[in-house]
Amino acid sequence: MRKILFAIALLSLVGIGSAAAAPTPPQNTVLPAVSGSTRQGETLTADPGTWSGTQPITFAFQWRRCDSNGSNCANIIGATSKTYTLASVDVGNTLRVRVRASNTAGSRVAVSAPTAVVSARPPKSISLESSQSIVVYGGSAMLTGSVSNGQAGEPVQIVEHLLPAVRGLQVRDVATVHTTADGSFSLAVQPLVHTLYKATTGETSSNAVSLSVRPRLRVSHTGLHRFLLRAIAARSFRGRYAVVQRWSSPRQHWIGIRRVFFRSAFAGISPTIVSRALFHARLGGVKLRVILPRSQTAPGYLTGLSNSVTA
């Protein structure tokens, strides 16, 4: 009899242990939540909330677009990841995220509270500036700028307006660059003449940046008291004059002594033109240089200034 009672008691204990080990389905204890800025272009992140039940518990997400009061919600097709990037269609609406928690015992669903109403992205703006305002022909300047309220990798087109036109070309696209993570961009440019630069993305344009250009002047010896002056630019200066200057030690400044005229010009690598002038100067070891005045370089160029040599 004792053996029978012991067996019954043992079976009862086994039954109790089996019932205690049975898996339980997920049960939500803290609702899912959504974090992030509710502005067009920003990314929202879902927190599944807190769940009890037999582990492991897996979560599936479904983002839902609702009206401004958080009602009349509908699933957003394809929005089933933990994050969601707000689009233009979301502006004026709220969003909720529905979380389905699943384990071996079943699944349950919980829905977050609605977000704040999604606002439109502020208008884009572009700034542009240059590392310098004047370059010598053939030299370069660095354009830098930034796109506010933009995104990384956004294309920015750099456009130049040549003043005056060079060989019939006045406005042209220079290059397309892309913004970095902070919205900045840069491009090295080599203006041919006085040039205005603008940056554009979509329908938004930057301020205009002005880059002025000086012709490149070089003076070299060609013989005893003989010199060659070359003016390098995107235009010819044939028939125009430059002024030879000598250095005055007592006065500590340059003094103009004569004019020299450019008698010839030849084409370099397009669109470069090299204008030439030959002249004599006998100054007894005094330094000289040549200046090409603005009256002779306009339009398109500032005053040009050569290197100095000993005459």
Rank of each mutant, 00 (worst) to 15 (best):
M142N: 15
V213A: 03
P191I: 00
R39F: 03
S133T: 13
I16P: 02
P25C: 10
V193C: 05
L128G: 01
A233N: 03
A181D: 12
S119Y: 02
Y197I: 04
L211G: 03
V136S: 10
A46T: 06
A113K: 12
P215Q: 09
L288I: 13
L229N: 01
G49D: 07
R167E: 14
A175T: 15
N69L: 14
L278E: 10
A233M: 03
P32W: 00
R65C: 06
V286S: 07
L229V: 06
S125M: 06
S102A: 15
I8W: 05
Q55S: 14
A165P: 00
P48Q: 09
L169T: 12
Q132N: 12
A21F: 10
T144S: 14
S205L: 07
V111E: 12
K198G: 14
L95C: 07
T115K: 04
T272F: 02
A231L: 03
S131G: 15
P123L: 09
A175L: 06
G139P: 03
V290Q: 01
S68R: 15
L217Q: 02
T204D: 06
P299S: 13
Q27T: 11
I16R: 08
G153D: 10
S133Y: 03
A22T: 12
D90E: 04
E203F: 08
S88Q: 15
D90N: 11
A277K: 01
A33E: 06
Q151M: 11
A116M: 12
P25F: 04
I291E: 07
G183M: 03
A33M: 08
S210E: 10
A21L: 13
R96C: 09
G139T: 06
Q40M: 10
I232Q: 11
S186E: 09
N149K: 09
S130W: 02
A79I: 04
G304C: 04
H253L: 05
F61W: 05
V209R: 00
A21Q: 10
W254A: 00
A141M: 06
N72T: 11
T272E: 14
P123I: 01
P122G: 08
R276P: 00
P271L: 06
L86Y: 00
